[in-house]
């Protein structure tokens, strides 16, 4: 447990909280880069995913690209771009954007695809324009899944940004690599704990957002469905009268 004592000592050392390379500065750097990367990646991936999901065209290549990119080792991409572009911020930013696109793209098209085609058909039948269908029907209904994509992309960006400190001088990852170099496990672990807390806080924020993103009508239906599930089988026609209670089956 004294490893944690070391980490705590490092975390509470006032010297680490002021000046260049201090904890607050690194946190802000980390969040700032993550936000910039997320905005750029989202600006590329979300509209693309929406178009794919809405039209159903280009789905196969999108699945292949987002699946294929997932196999891409992040460290390899980071180091390769760093060799090409030098040790500035460009390399990690570009690498991070590329790596953030698959989950965003997948979330967007999966979200749009998840919308019941009959609902879209009905919207068209009552006279909505395509733009209105996207804005008033597909987008609200797909929002939970799209936000889910943004959530996992953000987590990935935060994680990869930590790793990016290997090739560039920014973010909380610096503490980890500095600690590795000087064999200071307290600093390494302290930096890791900061990263973990940051990721969990951001993830918690998204969990909340995702819950709020569910349209009220859908939420109501879902609750009803859950209650029904809890009370037994959902297929009433198979069971006449009362649902069969689990305990009786064995």
């Amino acid at each position: 447990m004294n490893l944690f004592v070391d980490a705590l000592a490092w975390l509470t050392d006032p010297a680490n909280w002021t000046g260049a390379g201090s904890i607050p500065q690194r946190i802000i750097e980390h969040l700032w880069i993550s936000a910039v990367v997320l905005v750029i990646a989202a600006a590329i991936a979300l509209p693309l995913g929406g178009v794919i999901g809405h039209t159903g065209r280009g789905r196969e290549p999108a699945v292949m690209v987002s699946g294929g990119l997932r196999a891409l080792p992040t460290l390899g991409v980071l180091t390769l771009f760093a060799l090409w572009l030098g040790i500035g911020l460009q390399a990690p930013v570009i690498a991070l954007v590329i790596l953030a696109i698959p989950p965003l793209l997948a979330g967007a098209y999966a979200g749009f695809e998840s919308v019941d085609r009959r609902t879209v058909d009905a919207a068209r039948a009552v006279g909505m324009r395509e733009v209105q269908i996207v804005g008033k029907v597909e987008l609200p209904l797909s929002l939970p899944i799209v936000v889910g994509g943004i959530r996992s992309a953000t987590l990935q960006i935060i994680a990869t940004a930590t790793l990016a400190a290997y090739v560039s001088d920014f973010g909380l990852g610096r503490f980890i690599f500095a600690g590795l170099k000087t064999r200071d496990y307290g600093e390494m672990l302290g930096g890791s704990l900061l990263v973990i807390i940051l990721a969990l806080v951001v993830d918690g924020g998204f969990a909340l957002t995702q819950r709020l993103a569910v349209p009220a009508g859908v939420r109501a239906a879902r609750t009803a469905e859950n209650t029904e599930l809890r009370s037994g089988p959902t297929r009433p026609r198979a069971v006449v009268g009362r649902p069969i209670i689990e305990g009786n089956q064995e």
Binding site: V239, V240, R242, I244, N248
Partner: peptide, 20 residues
């Protein structure tokens, strides 16, 4: 024979103890 909720399937299932 009966409509939904008449217990006919429940009776049937009691024969092989799917319902006790």
């Amino acid at each position: 024979v009966g409509s939904s909720g008449s217990g006919k399937t429940t009776l049937l299932r009691m024969i092989n103890r799917m319902v006790d």
